[in-house]
Each structure stands twice: as C-alpha cells, then as structure tokens.
C-alpha cells in the first residue's frame, strides 16, 4: 500500500517546489510592501551560497542534530506522500522538530536557547491541532492512511470546516510567519536575533532551509487532503490558503507566546473539537 515512487518523487521534487514556493512568497511579500523584491529563484541562490560557506559551530554535535532534523523531515514527508499512516507521519514530524530544538539547545547560547524554548511552545501549540486534523480525516474516511484518505471521494472540507480553519491557524505557525514567528525570524527583526537558528552557519543553515522547504510541501500536501476529492479545487485551495497566509503575514505584528499558545489551543482546538464532536454525534445518530 505504500508507494515508493511517490516517496522518491517527493524526495526529488519537494525541494524544487518548496524553493519556488518560498521564492514566490518572498516576491509577493515584497510586492505587498511596495517593493520590487528578490528574483523568484532567490531561495536557491541563498541555499547555494550557504552551502558554499564555512561551517562554524559552537559544538560539533550541532551538525548531528541538524542532519537528523532534515533526515526525519524528509522521512516524514516521504511517508506522507507514499501514503503512510498519518499519525506516524505526524510523530516522525515531531521527532524531526525535536532534533531542531535539540540542535538549538546544544550550543548553550542564550538566544538559541530561548529560541528553543519558544520552538517548543510552538510545537505544543500546533501539535494537538494537527493530530485532531488527522483524527477528523479518520472519522470521515475511516482510515489513517494518506493514500486512502486521498482516494476518498468524500469532500472532506465539507465535513471538516472547523478543523480546516484550525489547521490553517497552525499552518501559520508552521510556516514561521507573522504573527506566530516566535522562535525564528527571516526578515523582520526579533528580540531573539534569529532564535533557534542563531548558532547555525552556512551548510547547517542551508539544511534547515531545505528542510523547511520539504516541510512546507508536506504541509501543503496536508491542505490538499482536505480537498482531495477534486485535484483542481485542491490546487486552487492550496494557492488561496497560501495567499491568505502571505496576507496574514503582512498584516499582523508578531504576538507573544502566551497569545500563540492560548489562541491556537482555544480557537483551533475548540474549532476542531466542536467540528469533530458534531461529526461524532452525527455518526452516532446515523449508525
């Protein structure tokens, strides 16, 4: 049931797609700010450059954590596109992030340490919602396997509107976009300098960036699942969702961690839970 081809396709294409998406993102953001913005291929230049740079570390173990981070991000993404068990994908995904956090911890530097703490806050903010999304998908399609969910004819979005809204919220967190770019920041400057990535230079930073591309593609795949009944609609939905994220990024100031945690737990969690509750009730009634 697991498709190796898809996994390999993901492995090869995701960086390309992820990089392009990120390039387009930067271009659109710049335009929203009234600027011309960088070329679309800029993210590739950045990563190319970072790979050429010298590798400075505080401690060698940082390399290990970051390598593990990217490996497990790739594993979870590949598992997802291969049609594996959604929960396992999510757990592998968490594992990968824990490695990133550990990498930040390892250097014993104030900024990356606090960044790591904040990253953890983000993880606990988004994880429940992602699990609930998977549960919601199971409740509709009776399967945790991505390939079965994707093959389902049911319009998931109609069953899971609340879950989808909640997911969009944590999507913002995962994309590291304002208002939730607590632990690291790409452009806008932050009290934490660069948060978790503060102590990573050159190649390691490039790996983080590539992992981020993989991650984004995986998350876009997750959005796809909500609309999997019709690929055209799904693609359109992905584009709209991403545009919305860019707009949100450009119209919000960064919030504090308390707000992040509360809002994502209360709003997203409740949205998701109420949605699931209704489904649950309906299933009970129908059965």
């Amino acid at each position: 049931m697991i498709s190796l081809t898809n996994a390999i396709l993901f492995l090869l294409l995701a960086p390309v797609i992820g990089g392009l998406v990120s390039g387009i993102d930067r271009k659109l953001t710049a335009r929203m700010q009234g600027r011309v913005g960088p070329p679309i291929l800029q993210p590739f230049y950045d990563v190319g450059k970072l790979l050429e740079k010298e590798n400075l570390v505080v401690t060698s173990s940082q390399n290990y954590y970051i390598l593990s981070y990217i490996v497990f991000i790739v594993v979870s993404g590949a598992l997802f596109f291969a049609g594996g068990d959604l929960l396992l994908v999510i757990f592998a995904f968490t594992l990968a992030h824990i490695f990133l956090v550990l990498g930040a911890y390892a250097s014993y530097s104030p900024y990356s340490f606090v960044g790591a703490e904040r990253e953890l806050i983000q993880i606990i903010a988004y994880e429940p919602m992602i699990i609930l999304s998977a549960v919601g998908m199971y409740m509709v399609t009776k399967s945790f396997f991505v390939n079965e969910i994707a093959a389902s004819e049911l319009p998931l979005i109609l069953y899971l509107p609340g879950v989808f809204i909640g997911f969009l919220m944590v999507f913002t967190i995962k994309l590291r976009k304002s208002p939730f770019d607590l632990s690291t920041s790409h452009h806008a400057h932050q009290e934490l300098v660069k948060g978790v990535t503060t102590e990573f230079t050159g190649p390691n930073l490039a790996r983080i960036e590539i992992a981020h591309w993989y991650e984004n593609v995986f998350l876009l795949g997750f959005v796809y699942l909500f609309f999997a009944f019709n690929p055209v609609i799904a693609i359109v939905a992905i584009i709209i969702a991403y545009l919305l994220e860019i707009l949100i990024d450009n119209t919000f100031s960064r919030v504090k961690w308390q707000f992040t945690l509360k809002s994502s737990w209360i709003v997203a969690g409740m949205m998701g839970l109420v949605n699931l509750g209704v489904l649950y009730y309906l299933a009970g009634v129908l059965v």
């Binding site: 600027r35 304002s178 806008a188 009290e191």
Partner: peptide, 16 residues
Amino acid sequence: FADGMGFENLFMNAWK
C-alpha cells in the same frame, strides 16, 4: 517600532 513588533510591512510602509 513596527519592525520591533515584527510587523515588517508596516516598517516598510513607514519608511516609504
């Protein structure tokens, strides 16, 4: 100030 709050667009706008 907007930059300090992480509001990049507003920063750009003010400086424009």
